[in-house]
Design a protein around this nucleic acid. Structure first.
Lengths: 125, 125
DNA sequence: CAGCTGCTTCGATGAACGTCAACATAGACA
DNA sequence: TGTCTATGTTGACGTTCATCGAAGCAGCTG
């Protein structure tokens, strides 16, 4: 909240070593802190427009897309920008300006962390 | 409001055949309809209290828990009931009254569907 | 430099949400 | 039957959120 306000869903993003904030949902009850962190992530994807934007970026070639490519989701462009900012604040997207256009890119480790969150605990059947 | 208003996140729940509403997020851009459906699910988990409740149920023995076991999340009991109703409406939980107590149970197929949603597309590296 | 395009920020508005207190309902037990 | 406990429901209140139009900033192009 103080600096870049990027949420610490994962701790390191250098390689493929994913350090999720929380164990799988089925492993043990979440603590208040874990729930707070993970809920921010789910909330970021809890809007249809944001989900479409995120999916558009994630499915784009090279894992990145310029705003002009994905802004056809039925809302005004300021709204698109607003949602992209929300996704960025949630740590799900990263943006980079390249000349005229701004490109958004998915953080793959975050996607992996979310996937693990929803994985069944391996022990129980 | 009308009936049970359970969302059709998955179509069949008979066996382990999961029929998710949507492809993986990375496969192709979501349509408006897909995004609407999936966003409801994410939104349901986008609240810390609901996430704790869901995790408490999911991690409980036999995959089910009575309200009295999980209502210690720092909010009043009507609020707990309210959130459990939301989770039920989202299709993530199912409830059953057994004598005095009401037991909530996780829909395993829904969890699997969500996990698949966040899976990387298998083809791309 | 001037004009144009792409994107973000600002301010406002209406809707949705989380929370609680109070009431209602269902079952257990005396 | 009456009462007590466990849950669900209703209504209200304050907050957050999504959305838009207008304005501002950044970079290209003439």
């Amino acid at each position: 909240m103080s600096n870049t306000s990027v949420l610490p869903l994962i701790e390191a993003e250098g390689s493929e070593a994913v350090a999720p904030c929380c164990p799988p949902l089925t492993e043990r009850p979440f603590t208040a802190e874990e729930a707070e962190t993970a809920a921010r992530m789910f909330k970021a994807l809890g809007d249809p427009v944001r989900l479409r934007l995120f999916s558009a970026v994630a499915s784009h070639a090279a894992g990145e897309a310029c705003v002009c490519d994905i802004s056809d989701v039925g809302v005004s462009q300021p709204t698109v920008s607003h949602h992209l900012k929300k996704l960025k604040e949630a740590g799900l997207l990263a943006s980079e300006r390249r000349g005229t256009w701004v490109y958004y890119r998915v953080e793959p480790s975050v996607l992996a962390a979310m996937g693990k969150l929803l994985t069944m605990a391996p022990a129980t059947a």
